[in-house]
């Protein structure tokens, strides 16, 4: 019963954090941009129209409101007992709801990609500039953070094999979990390589802003990798030490933590006041 109450608290926090608090802060941010850098002075920022930008904000807000209500409906059905099985609350429930909660963010990303694509199409400048210096991973993150990422993986693998008395067998749980995490790490490092050496998404963005944004994103990816390693380690502990009843709470907390270290970290550190918006002015000659 105590665990169920704890689950309510944690799950309601998930609903509030992911469908109200962070979307609210993002909407505030977008409105600030619209107010301080309007289409009249910064036309390059709105390749489609200011109205389209406004519609996207409204749609984002509407979907999040719906998801907030959906979350409360889920809480009601858990309370009523419809969503509680014989073994208690399904640990995948917070995850499934999280996936739906992430849809507005995904739509926002797609909107962002669409905008930058239009910016590129409308970019008529004939001069292109580049810095004549190579970019490396440690220009963006400290070697300590990188070491922590690797150490988290090794710790998780060591723990996974420890629970199996260090019997190295293909197809064992420890082997499979290590491989899953390795695939995840490869994916994240590919993303990091793309961020460092890939094409510019926003053609007008200044080099300084690009470096800063990439640095923040890479840092959040590193934190995510560490969190994933520890969560997988926790999942193994759950299976080994019969802690299954804790899993729904742990799952919800883990997902919230992921959003805090990604969206929360970005909102906190990528301050709008520090971004160079002059590059979006009509008469800007930024390369």
């Amino acid at each position: 019963m105590t665990i169920q109450i704890l689950f309510y608290v944690v799950f309601i926090a998930q609903i509030f954090l992911l469908s109200a608090y962070f979307p609210g802060r993002l909407i505030q941010r977008m409105r600030f941009i619209q107010r301080e850098y309007p289409a009249s002075s910064h036309p390059k920022l709105y390749p489609k129209s200011s109205n389209y930008f406004q519609k996207s904000i409204s749609a984002y807000r509407f979907i999040n409101t719906l998801l907030f209500i959906l979350g409360l409906v889920i809480v009601y059905y858990i309370y009523e007992g419809s969503l509680v099985g014989e073994k208690g609350i399904n640990p995948m429930l917070p995850w499934a709801y999280f996936m739906i909660q992430m849809m507005p963010s995904l739509l926002l990303e797609i909107f962002g990609f669409k905008m930058t694509k239009l910016m590129k199409q409308e970019d008529i400048r004939t001069h292109k500039s580049a810095n004549l210096a190579p970019r490396h991973l440690f220009d963006y993150i400290s070697p300590w953070l990188f070491s922590a990422v690797i150490l988290a993986y090794l710790t998780m693998v060591a723990f996974a094999f420890y629970t199996e008395d260090f019997k190295f067998e293909f197809g064992s749980k420890a082997f499979i979990v290590s491989m899953i995490l390795l695939v995840g790490y490869v994916f994240f490092f590919s993303l990091i390589t793309w961020l460092i050496r890939g094409k510019k998404t926003d053609p007008y963005q200044s080099q300084k802003d690009r470096t800063k944004t990439a640095s923040l994103v890479i840092t959040t990816l590193c934190y995510t990798m560490i969190a994933c390693a520890f969560f997988l380690g926790f999942s193994i502990a759950v299976a080994t030490y019969q802690l299954k009843s804790m899993m729904p709470v742990a799952m919800s907390l883990f997902l919230q933590f992921l959003v805090v270290i990604s969206t929360g970290f970005m909102l906190q550190n990528n301050r709008l006041e520090d971004i160079d918006f002059d590059v979006y002015k009509a008469d800007s000659t930024a390369k």
Partner: peptide
């Protein structure tokens, strides 16, 4: 050090 190319 920055370099600039004129595509036209």
């Amino acid at each position: 050090m920055e370099i600039t190319v004129d595509i036209e």
